[in-house]
Design a protein around this nucleic acid. Structure first.
Lengths: 140, 140
DNA sequence: ATAATAAATGTAACGATTACAAATATTATA
DNA sequence: TATAATATTTGTAATCGTTACATTTATTAT
């Protein structure tokens, strides 16, 4: 899957639309998440962006991702106890983690259908469907 | 939901059946998980069991839960980045976390149905469906 | 009984995340 | 344009859950 380039105009607009100021770090982090769609850890984002933003700090990545999360532009997911991962792809989908190569892949899933049969009287605001196993490449 | 008492005979049999020696710590941890069904953290297990097992150490809880996990008697889940939780209830079900009171509730869900529509050629070995929101009590 | 093995303990190390104060950049106001 | 006010970023230190490891204790086999 080739990374799809996303224009700065689109990014700044997305940020402004979510009422987040389009600072350099925010634009770059959002761009990275939208282009790569690889559900990276904070450290992966940090290492990747440091090449073009040499002054970037790990803390800034935490802050930035936190701001994007609060603005609803990014979602966190945890498939393995210690490592938190981030996703800016907002269409309904589930997550598959390959336990051999570690990759996290998206798959189509109608999340909105879940929860109706859930706990009576509860209000559901967030959903996720998680699968673990071997990805097609590793299954062979 | 009242805690259902589980006999030591049942526990030791369950452990032996999974080829895990029924040591004191293992019996108590498994008993706790099966009776409470509250998806506790390691620390919650530790604090609860320390009352009856004063010599219990946090490390032992880690070791014990790890052994039970490897034996397939316990499953881990993470609904909030930092805190890992454990579940010895093996029937198919999803997990709902109340973001106000923090409780994690089970709900019926046919997990085996998921994954078929997943990634072509992948092998799925573990599944979970996660919901977040407000539990019935907190929703009011 | 004794030796061999497994389990439990406690301390130290580790790694991801958060807290916080200082520095820098951005925006608003004069 | 200067200046003040505010927001963002940085870097270091603290925190917290987890893991590593060596020692002690308990269990099993001889």
């Amino acid at each position: 899957m080739k990374a799809q380039a996303i224009s700065n105009e689109y990014l700044t607009e997305a940020l402004r639309g979510a009422e987040v100021r389009p600072s350099t770090a925010r634009v770059h982090v959002l761009k990275y998440l939208l282009e790569q769609r690889n559900h990276p850890t904070i450290d992966q984002i940090y290492r990747a962006l440091r090449e073009t933003l040499p002054s970037l700090s790990r803390t800034s990545v935490y802050n930035t991702v936190g701001a994007l999360q609060q603005a609803g532009l990014v979602r966190a997911l945890t498939m393995e106890g210690n490592e938190m991962r981030y996703d800016a792809f907002t269409e309904d989908h589930g997550h598959f983690k390959c336990e051999r190569c570690g990759a996290i892949l998206d798959f189509d899933a109608d999340l909105s259908a879940i929860g109706a049969a859930g706990i009576k009287g509860s209000v559901v605001t967030k959903r996720d469907v998680l699968l673990w196993g071997l990805c097609p490449a590793c299954a062979k």
